[in-house]
Design a protein around this nucleic acid. Structure first.
Lengths: 362, 362
DNA sequence: CGTCGATAATAATGCGCATAATCCCCTTGT
DNA sequence: ACAAGGGGATTATGCGCATTATTATCGACG
């Protein structure tokens, strides 16, 4: 006997009022010109308690209300190939915050992958409409899709810094510039003068930020930038040796362990001969994660903060402009892969620029 | 200008038919006595293509239709404390299958935690109704809640074997009995005669199954069961040494690495002195996962298969009884922690029972 | 005494869809 | 010539809620 679920009409009948009144009491906000007495309110509340009524989120949504569901959209396909290793921590943070807020999470896994990336369109915007708002995750967002979101005033927030669209995109990102700056400064403080950047020269925001932090700091210390962009670990190791680098900052797209092995093959040891700082934990899980120095990316916190921001956006809490763009600090990781350069046992202040620099860098 | 989204009415107008006709064509299934000509069908399809219409899942659901959303409910709180390490792989499998099927995933993170476990009720069944069906994950399900699901005919499926409720609960589980049996058989084949079971004596299904597999195999080999239930690794190691065990099967709730360390402290080495097989990868991530022998739990596949089963249940594909209870095979893991017992270098067939057995086991 | 303004609430509407009930027209049988 | 039947669609209804428009009562004011 699948007896009907309790509806507002049931509650209304019990309280001796109309369905509309129940709705008003529930939302605790009556339109202009409508009044509900304290007594009636109480009767409705009692009826709700007695019947155990709870709102049908589907109907709420259809009628244009909120339903405490936040969508999560990932531009890159989470499958196959360990995408989750990367997105997992964000999800964890999002779920955590959602649990606190009493919000359900809708994963848009149905969006088909077109040319390697997911599309919000293609099979309909409509599915977005189930959720009160949506968190966007990944690199390759689509301009026109974003424009549509802005046009329709659909609440959304990015996880990861977004500089485009004239700063109209709400986001929670990680402060790679500062974190990279500090990493390089650590190396400089240890006495390093030939500090290389190992990574790809992409145009994505994280890479731009890391490079900016690296370049600015290196320049400020009177050193020159040395980019090692080889993809192959062996080639990278060769470049490091050729350029006589004593320290490296390694972007997450490169595998520090493979690099370390390749260096070892040339009898170059970390950190004895070359110090290594990771600019964020890599996508692949490390065999010995605790050993690597550098900084961590606060992925869980980013997810949680983004959900918080979005829920405020949804509630239309008039979020101030300044809170729409959050950059979280990347915690430093001490590790064991940073040491003074060989032949310079005393870590000191900032000395003069490397005297061999002009000779090796044309 | 937030122009309205395309509705069936729009499509209908363009095709010169009624909204109902569009609905019929879309669902490709007309009620008794209704007929749509091939020509009309084509006009509607064209209109759909031109307008880029896609159904509003919320309205679909409210009107009693399906909306391609599957819920995932986790009984244990996923937070705090690495719950995701455990549930993550299931989720990955679920998402993977969902992507194939064009289904979205709704995580019921909003269900508040009462006394350490989540409740489907408490804050409303209604939220379940958003999804076409629901996957249930975790140990501590509630009888009355299940009964309600059965009563209301709400489609659901468990991930993990469920023997209760007279076999009416659909599930996809892992065959721990067989996997454990094979693990013990491996040890017997290596020549071991004193094989211990390390783990907790819970009444949960996985534990019951592991114990059943262990007891049956040990008995069949003419050996006696030796349960080591100490929680502390050091105490476990002591018990292992006291009982003169040469091999262990270790349930996932115990940390094999800690145990190994504790054994090492007594100068007992794995696998030289004691062989160890893991009865499923442990919850905590291992430092050297590849080294441990035993079997793996096909978590991703379980998630995927469960979603497949549920989607068939939802579609009312008349799933045969036999497919409602699936047990997946646990792949063996070779590893390096299993070896012949000390002093018995030649791994042979099944010899006689351990001669010292009666002396040490009262 | 009629009317304005507030209070207190209700009836009515529509969200977009699935589906039951109904309608119209044309062919066939008698 | 007229009923019966079936193909081809339409209209109507309701899902449960938010929201707008409307009604009713009452005290105060001129």
């Amino acid at each position: 006997m699948p007896r009907r679920r309790i509806t507002q009409a049931d509650v209304a009948a019990m309280a001796g009022v109309s369905q509309a009144t129940v709705s008003f009491v529930l939302n605790d906000r009556v339109p202009e010109g409508v009044h509900i007495s304290a007594d009636t309110r109480q009767r409705v509340r009692d009826a709700i308690r007695i019947t155990g009524y709870s709102a049908n989120p589907v109907a709420q949504r259809l009628a244009g209300g909120r339903n405490q569901i936040i969508g999560v959209f990932t531009y890159e396909a989470t499958f196959p190939g360990g995408g989750r290793d990367f997105y997992g921590p964000f999800l964890v943070g999002i779920e955590h915050a959602a649990e606190q807020l009493g919000i359900d999470i809708l994963l848009f896994t149905s969006a088909r992958v077109v040319e390697g990336r997911r599309r919000l369109t293609r099979d309909g915007w409509q599915r977005l409409g189930i959720a009160d708002g949506c968190l966007l995750l990944g690199q390759h967002e689509d301009r026109s899709e974003l424009q549509h979101l802005l046009d329709t005033n659909y609440p959304f927030a990015f996880i990861g810094k977004r500089a485009s669209e004239g700063g109209r995109l709400p986001y929670v990102g990680a402060d790679y510039v500062t974190a990279t700056r500090r990493a390089v400064e650590r190396l400089v403080a240890l006495g390093h003068r030939r500090i290389g950047y190992v990574g790809e020269l992409g145009t994505d925001q994280p890479t731009l930020d890391r490079l900016e932090g690296y370049r600015a700091t290196v320049q400020q210390a009177g050193l020159s930038a040395r980019l090692v962009t080889e993809e192959d670990p062996a080639a990278t190791a060769a470049a490091v040796v050729d350029q006589g680098l004593t320290a490296l900052v390694v972007a997450p797209e490169r595998d520090a362990e493979e690099l370390s092995d390749a260096l070892l093959a040339r009898d170059v040891r970390v950190p004895r001969d070359v110090s290594v700082l990771l600019l964020g934990q890599p996508h692949r899980r490390l065999r010995r994660p605790q050993e690597w120095s550098g900084f961590a990316i606060p992925r869980e916190e980013m997810g949680a903060r983004a959900l918080l921001m979005l829920s405020r956006l949804v509630a239309n809490d008039d979020v101030p402009e300044t809170e729409l763009h959050q950059l979280l600090e990347c915690p430093e990781v001490e590790g064991a892969t940073a040491a003074p350069p060989p032949g310079a046992p005393a870590p000191g202040g900032q000395g003069p620029a490397d005297p061999t620099e002009l000779a090796t860098a044309p």
